[in-house]
């Protein structure tokens, strides 16, 4: 292999190591960005909606207690607004199904909420249910707890997935950084090896040739320099030897 190609290959290897590491780090960083967006889109929105649904459910429970104590107008107003808030949250989670098993959980919420709603939609004030705490504790409260539990389960599902995604992000960040570190260390080591080869196979032969020529000029001894490689330096040595031979012939003539 010619000297020019050898030196070029050294630089190409350095460039290749750093280039691949750079491209991979960029790719990983881009996917990290996409994953962060994914967490916000997929899980955080559902968690937020679930919180709103739980808050709405608690307001509905308070409204039922108001109806039981005979506060019809205030109770019904709260129920109406809380129901609307719950529906908004429900629509959000129904339109944001991203995890395995989430769809079934949303259906469970719907079923449990319908059962709960059937109970408080019926007239309470001025019926035998008014001030009937036994009815509240036997029917309303268990139904309320059931809906709340299903919403909490949905929130826990999204919470868990968000945690898992965040953990995988940590791994991805590691994967984005490591090739760079490896490339830097590899490049440093490679530079030392490259420098050694350039010294041994390029600089030293040139020094030996220079020394040989100087010796020849001073003492007239024949040029005796060993060049181990089959490259431009060997050609240079041959050219110098030819020149010296020609000069000797001319001097002899």
């Amino acid at each position: 292999m010619k000297l020019r190609l050898k030196i070029l290959s050294g630089f190409m290897i350095l460039v290749a190591t750093l280039f691949v590491a750079g491209v991979w780090s960029m790719y990983q960083l881009t996917t990290i960005g996409a994953s962060v967006q994914g967490i916000l889109d997929d899980n955080y929105r559902s968690i937020n909606a679930s919180k709103k649904m739980i808050e709405a459910l608690e307001r509905e429970d308070s409204a039922v207690l108001l109806l039981l104590s005979g506060e019809w107008k205030e109770g019904r107003e709260i129920l109406k607004s809380a129901h609307k808030a719950f529906q908004q949250g429900y629509e959000t989670v129904r339109g944001n199904i991203t995890i395995a098993g989430e769809e079934e959980q949303v259906s469970r919420i719907e079923a449990a909420y319908n059962t709960y709603k059937d109970l408080w939609e019926r007239p309470i004030v001025a019926t035998d249910r008014e001030s009937n705490l036994a009815w509240y504790f036997q029917e309303i409260h268990p139904a309320f707890q059931e809906v709340k539990l299903t919403v909490e389960t949905l929130m826990a599902m999204n919470d868990k997935t968000m945690y898992q995604t965040a953990t995988s992000l940590k791994d991805r960040a590691h994967r984005a950084a490591m090739p760079g570190i490896v490339a830097i260390v590899a490049a440093l080591v490679f530079t030392l090896v490259f420098n050694y080869f350039v010294n041994y196979y390029v600089v030293n032969p040139i020094l030996r040739l220079t020394e040989g020529i100087q010796k020849h000029v001073q003492t007239g001894e024949p040029l005796d320099v060993v060049i181990e490689t089959q490259d431009e330096l060997l050609d240079l040595k041959s050219a110098i030897q030819n020149l010296l031979t020609k000069r000797h012939k001319e001097e002899a003539q």
Partner: peptide, 13 residues
């Protein structure tokens, strides 16, 4: 790739 480049390079010289 890193391993191959480090392995092949000395063979050039």
């Amino acid at each position: 790739v890193v391993c191959a480049l480090f392995g092949v390079f000395p063979l050039f010289f």
